[in-house]
Computed example of a mutant assay.
Amino acid sequence: MTEKASNKTKTVRLSSRQLAIGSVLVAIVVLALKYAAYAMTNSVGLYSDALETLINLAAAFAVLIALRLGEKPADQNHQFGHHKAEYLSAVAEGVLVVLAAIAIFMEAYEALMHPRDLSVPIIGLVLNGLAGVGNALWAFTLVHFGRKLRSPALVADGKHLYTDVVTSIGVLAGVGLAKVTGLIWLDPLLAMCVGVSILFTGWQLIRGSLSGLMDEAIDQEELQQLRETIMANAEGAIEAHDIRTRHAGRVIFVEFHLVVPSKMTVYAAHAICDRIEEAFQQEMPHAVVTIHIEPEYMANESEFDDNLPLD
């Protein structure tokens, strides 16, 4: 059995940490702008928008801590590394979103029971709009680079910010409509809609993270790339089967059985494994590969009916 992990992750980790620090700084600026907008308007809708940004700030800190923990090397108690720490961050973010929704519902109910006058100076709406633009730009940055860096925590944070942008647009439109029409009850009603929206976001974050914690297999596109890499670099072997995969943070773990001629020497079989592993380092550097060598009579003995002929 042979095993080899990529040695190219240091730059990825540094870049992920920089993005996480950026998320904290962006969240602080956006929170200041949105709270100022709420203070100027006394709008429950803008209050809900500001409260969601407070959750964004807490989530950004959680992502930063998770990335720092996830980059720790394997040790005696965590021999496969700490990569799944990122999933815990995404779960924590989902829980925070749910708590924010509950707080929004409570404030909106209070405003419905005891209507309050709205003061809507243009500067307040402009501040909230600027905050939304900042969130949109940063959300795109997080999702784009988070996918490149294979970081579920960064991608989850970016998707959450996308939702924040959409709700900010709805809040601005609703507050303006409530002021123009005089229907003050539109403001808390809109806040409740925001609460429902972020509840759905929280559920998506938790569901996506649980798939990683439950060792879900990689997607079909990556699996096809994996199979092609094996086929292109396993000359001399007969078959590969029982291909198992799972993802943990930005890393995927791959293991499979490689059938070789019964009379092949250990040295020759090991050379084939080295060739396959070197190809993975070039084409899928985020993969940790384990190969189990089997003699020829084990061909067509796949547990998963996934025989991959190589000769």
Rank of each mutant, 00 (worst) to 15 (best):
L57S: 02
A139H: 03
A90P: 01
I104D: 06
P152Y: 12
A136N: 01
D117F: 02
Q79V: 11
Y162A: 08
G70P: 06
V44T: 15
A111S: 09
I104C: 03
L51Q: 10
F105I: 12
L112C: 12
L99N: 03
E52K: 02
F61H: 04
E107S: 15
E52G: 15
S151K: 06
H82L: 10
V98L: 14
Y47M: 06
A62F: 01
H78W: 12
I102T: 07
R116V: 09
A90E: 12
L51T: 13
T163H: 07
V30W: 00
A32N: 05
L54D: 01
N77I: 01
H78R: 08
A101H: 02
L64A: 15
I55G: 07
T167G: 07
N128F: 00
E71P: 00
V120N: 11
A90I: 14
A136S: 07
V98N: 00
L67K: 06
I104T: 11
R147K: 15
K84G: 09
G134M: 02
K84M: 14
L130H: 02
V166S: 07
P73R: 12
L51G: 07
D49R: 03
P73K: 12
F140M: 14
Y87N: 14
A101G: 10
A92Q: 03
A139G: 05
H144Y: 15
I102K: 05
H83V: 07
W138L: 02
I28Q: 02
P121A: 11
Y162V: 13
I28T: 05
A108D: 03
L154K: 04
Y87K: 01
N135R: 02
A92I: 13
V133D: 06
V95N: 04
L51H: 05
D75G: 00
A39M: 07
V44P: 01
P115K: 10
V30G: 00
S89V: 13
I123H: 03
F140T: 12
E71K: 06
H78V: 09
L51Y: 12
A111C: 01
L31F: 10
P115L: 14
G94Y: 10
L33N: 00
E110N: 11
P115Q: 14
Y38G: 05
A85E: 12
F140W: 14
K72T: 02
I102C: 06
G146I: 13
V29I: 10
Y162S: 11
M40A: 10
V24F: 12
H78P: 01
L142A: 09
F80R: 08
V30T: 00
V97H: 11
D49C: 08
M40S: 05
V126T: 09
M113G: 08
A103W: 13
S119T: 14
A101T: 04
A153K: 08
T141D: 07
A85D: 08
Y109S: 03
P115Y: 13
L67I: 15
A37G: 10
A39Q: 07
L149G: 03
L125K: 02
L112F: 13
L137Q: 04
F105E: 09
R116N: 11
L57V: 05
A32H: 07
A101F: 02
N77P: 00
H82Y: 14
R68D: 13
N77C: 01
L118E: 12
S119D: 12
A103S: 15
V155G: 11
Q76F: 08
S48V: 02
